[in-house]
Design a binder for these strands. Structure first.
Lengths: 217, 217, 217, 217
DNA sequence: CATGAATGAGCGTTCATTCAT
DNA sequence: CATGAATGAACGCTCATTCAT
């Protein structure tokens, strides 16, 4: 009945930890949260099992490797969890839109607001994507978080807008990257004086996106 | 001030290395180049004195600390050098422009081309800015390379355009960040199929910038 | 005596496992076999509960400690089992012999053949004897497998031969050690080109033993 | 002029340590000696950098890895050193002999005496040969110390004896293995009551070898 | 200008084992 | 009979750095 004939511990191949009991789930969440905060605060390079243990207030780093196996697997779990949270918060906000223009604005709004309200998760995702590497030195999760769901979600909207005639001709890949980068960069403008509010950022970016994408009359 | 004062080694406060002899200059350049390649290839976290030594083909890591002092000072020197090279390659290209519109396009052109032609330096700068931290964990060079010269160079152009009436009203800080992010992101579009050429990227981005900034008629 | 007394688990002092049910016996055999193969293949130092678990295809290392207690006790059980198997395979072959000369030849034959046919068990016994140690660092099972049954079984034959006048005077202990070592070493000659067959080894060794032990005429 | 463009530290590929200065040589010897004693006393599995450091009375385990690189390279250096010492002590003792019979006896004498007088080195060599493994689990130095110089040195003598007619026909490989095993096993007889003296062991073994190898009249 | 020797702190990981059901 | 959760100790190794020449 067990999917992974396991060691009792999180195996290299299994994304699941030991058991799936509520207790295990709680522990895992506790550790993942501590990892996110640590990554956001001191960065990937300084994020060690010892520092995560400290923040999670658990007895030993052994508990981390018990539940997640290696550090790489922990990072993977953190990324997965953060991405899931973002997806759940954002996706439904775009659901009702019927036009590409509306969908694009809704999506930008939702992403900016999520980024503004979940700085640690955002930062943690960046830290992992930009630093986590395979043994051979190549970035494990792509050259940037650009391959992530939030970028990929933009492109279909842009393509739909071109097909419906709402949008002009442009390279949808580069435009999606640009918009995602702009959204992520907005956090800087919200925190560097003279600070912009979330609403102002949303406003600036939706306008920018509109002007950059709309069909010339 | 320093205990080792007078040993002939790079001091903590001095940006210069030991002496300024041609030999020393050559050594420093050799090490900086190796550091750039290493940073670009395997990232900040994996960039150690040992790996730099290997690539620079020098006898001992001691030579690195001899010329640069600490790792942080080496990173600082690398960043300074890479930024200088970028500046020298880019700045004169904008010199002749008289309109904000022209200056903006020239700047985007120059930056995209430099990024495309100097991937390692670009990557190395990113690695340092996004990862180099003080003892207390805060990013040493700002939250992003956004505070760097290339971002800061965009904002005056945007402001000038608003003042001259060429550009509409928008937050110049956020727009500068967006454009810089878009330029950096372009490298992804040049390397992920279906790849865009440098010229195509320049075209897309200058059009985008024009539409996003111009005054509505 | 033991804190966990009465938990149903293998106690420190008891050679038996928990219960003696057929199921428990089967599990123990399964684990012992996996341990033998692991010892033979990767050696005592690399033989861990985790690797045994893997090979035995059981769910957790906990199952091993459940049935055998500590690692030392498992090793003890493995050694006992392997020695028992060897004894059962060898002892009856010598039973019918009436002369020391005949008994010696029969014993050498039987041992060489067993060694050749049970490489893993042989190797596992060696790994345990040569590596298993007490807390104070002393070898638990003697300085070599020399104290083991197969060595001890040779000496009475040699002594009997001296008493009956078949054999010359020599130190029976050293001769027994020599013969046992030679038998074990034979495995190397069977596997290193130009390989000898089992029959050839038996032949060489029985001749050697005969010449070395017989009374000078 | 340096053979290995090095890190300043012992590299993975280089058998040499940092520099070859007298100081470095002394340190290396100090560590090798401590490693030999540790191996002999508590075995390969328990021989850690920490325990070697303790016995060598040096400040940090870092000093070991500084001079030898990895543990495997240390073991390699120990084996090499021990083998060299044995070779130097034994080889010249056989030099003057003109007959195979004489050479064989001289060699047995020399080896038994060396084994008796250098128990730690002997034991250390065994520990390394029997336990040191590659990443894939295979024994690094052959299935036994049988491939070592002391075994190989016996076989030419045996072959020469057969060619000169002094010795009967037998498999020289197996005989060499047998004699080497017997010599090593002799240490057990010298230490297990009723103990034999070195002279007695030499006597027993040379007689044994003579009877086992001589041509039948 | 360049090197040699040494070093302490920290890393992720693996170990067998124990307390619960 | 079997498992889940947890754990402290130890491991080899790598890090940047410093004190000598």
């Amino acid at each position: 009945m067990r999917v992974t004939e396991g060691t009792g511990e999180a195996g290299a191949a299994s994304a699941v930890g030991p058991g799936r009991s509520p207790a295990a789930r709680a522990r895992r969440a506790q550790i993942v949260d501590a990892a996110i905060e640590t990554l956001a605060e001191i960065g990937h390079g300084q994020t060690t099992f010892a520092r995560i243990r400290e923040r999670a207030d658990i007895s030993s780093t052994r508990l981390i490797s018990y539940h997640f196996g290696t550090k790489g697997e922990l990072m993977s779990a953190v990324l997965e969890e953060a991405a899931l949270r973002a997806h759940q918060a954002i996706s439904h906000r775009v659901a009702g839109e019927t036009t590409a223009t509306g969908a694009l604005r809704a999506r930008i709004e939702a992403q900016v607001e999520w980024v503004a309200g979940n700085r640690s998760s955002m930062r943690a995702m960046y830290e992992i994507c930009l630093n986590e590497r395979d043994a051979d030195g190549t970035l494990r999760y792509g050259m940037a978080p650009s391959a992530q769901a939030n970028v990929e979600a933009l492109e279909p909207i842009l393509r739909a807008g071109q097909e419906s005639g709402e949008f002009r001709r442009f390279d949808t890949g580069l435009m999606a990257l640009t918009l995602k980068s702009a959204i992520d960069a907005a956090i800087v403008r919200m925190t560097h004086p003279p600070c912009l509010t979330v609403a102002q950022c949303v406003d600036e970016l939706t306008t920018l996106a509109h002007l950059a994408t709309r069909r010339e009359s």
